[in-house]
């Protein structure tokens, strides 16, 4: 009998706990609706047709300032080691945010005529976060790197 009581209590506690976590989840979505590392991963999986799961380290370098004082315009430089020859080149580099309102930032498409897989641009960063760079090579290999940026003043609307 006593055992039964304990079980009921457990179940009730479970329901309360489940309810609380569901509320937290909803609050997370309706609130700032920020990209999270999980959402960034989801987006990267879609971008690469699941290839991101086999992504390797190295080759790609994403240069960002260690501390970005103005999140409205943060210089970003990407470079990927490659010969950029007709049968071995970098096809695309994606930049993905783990802390902006949306994970997608920009994609750069290269060809052997690019000579080098280098590109520079300026991005908005809402807060301190990791920026993920993904390089898709012509042979289907995928390389990935993560760079942390500290953002003093966020730059995404508000």
């Amino acid at each position: 009998m006593t055992k039964m009581k304990v079980e009921v209590l457990d179940r009730r506690q479970f329901v309360i706990a489940a309810g609380a976590s569901a509320t937290a989840l909803i609050a997370g979505f309706t609130g700032a609706a920020n990209a999270t590392p999980e959402k960034a991963m989801e987006y990267m999986t879609k971008l690469t047709n699941g290839g991101v799961a086999k992504a390797m380290d190295g080759k790609i370098k994403v240069d960002l300032p260690e501390i970005a004082e103005n999140g409205n315009t943060v210089p970003v430089k990407v470079s990927v080691e490659s010969d950029m020859s007709a049968d071995d080149y970098v096809k695309t580099v994606h930049l993905i945010s783990e802390g902006n309102p949306a994970p997608e930032m920009a994609s750069f498409h290269f060809t052997p005529a690019s000579g080098r897989a280098n590109a520079a641009a300026r991005m908005r960063l809402a807060k301190t976060q990791n920026v993920v760079g993904i390089a898709e090579m012509s042979d289907g290999k995928i390389y990935m790197s993560k760079t942390q940026v500290k953002v003093t003043i966020g730059g995404c609307g508000g």
């Binding site: 997608e104 930032m105 920009a106 991005m123 908005r124 960063l125």
Partner: peptide, 8 residues
Amino acid sequence: ADWHGAVS
């Protein structure tokens, strides 16, 4: 290049 809302 494809640009999204995160481009300055």
